[in-house]
Design a binder for these strands. Structure first.
Lengths: 126, 126
DNA sequence: CACATTGTACTATATGTATAGTACAATATA
DNA sequence: TATATTGTACTATACATATAGTACAATGTG
């Protein structure tokens, strides 16, 4: 099950954040072919966004054959292999770190201090 | 001098990308207090965006006292100093790291990967 | 002083994003 | 078969973003 999380301050539209997170989830093996996604209504409630916002995200992925939808049943991970390029991964990592360094710098926190703090979380992934 | 670059596909508004890049440049020591930024017109031409878009970015940073503007002369890096207690700083460091580990995890990025990326910025800040 | 440069302040328009609300269609299930 | 669940399809509204265009104000320089 994916753990969706929206950042309203990033400037990236909600529906695009949802799309990205599903794509990355597939690329990193967190969800597999045939897995059911939350219903549009359930995810809308969970993320506190409008039904139409989730629908827009699902619909776009459905057009790309990345998701398969069955009305009355739900939305599922399709059989199209999702390739998140190494370039895109690097871009995402860079983008997150830049935001990170910025947010920290406001409080006088240096990259080195961030690294030291982050070491506490090493090995916690997945 | 900062090297501005806009990504129209990121979903992040142009004016916010400009803001981010200035803030990031300050955070990493690429620009220093008193440095002059490109004029609103020059940057608009350089980035191929409208005058108003650059103006909006500069204005927001000016309100935050991050930039100082002198009409007829130009726009300069201001002398913002954030005073935060050691206790508050520790709490903020922890809070920021938790947020970013979570945000990264959504995209399958591990703390270790964050650390490796952050090392690129080590030593860049004062 | 005259002029160029710089920032500022408007109006107007177009597009994208998000919300609210309503209704309907297809499917699963009791 | 009746009901609930799920996806789908609209309309309408509000706000943010970006562009285009024009004009004015403050400053520096010849």
């Amino acid at each position: 099950m994916l753990e969706f999380q929206l950042d309203p301050r990033s400037g990236v539209p909600f529906y695009r954040q949802i799309i990205d997170q599903i794509r990355f989830g597939m690329a990193t093996g967190r969800v597999k072919v045939g897995d059911q996604l939350p219903t549009v209504r359930a995810l809308a409630v969970q993320l506190k966004v409008n039904l139409n916002t989730v629908t827009k995200a699902y619909k776009e992925l459905e057009i790309q054959k990345i998701l398969e939808t069955q009305q009355g049943t739900g939305t599922f991970i399709g059989t199209v292999k999702v390739n998140v390029s190494a370039k895109e991964k690097r871009a995402k990592l860079k983008s997150i770190c830049e935001d990170y360094v910025n947010a920290a710098a406001v409080y006088g926190i240096t990259p080195k201090q961030l690294i030291d703090e982050l070491k506490k979380y090493e090995g916690e992934s997945k």
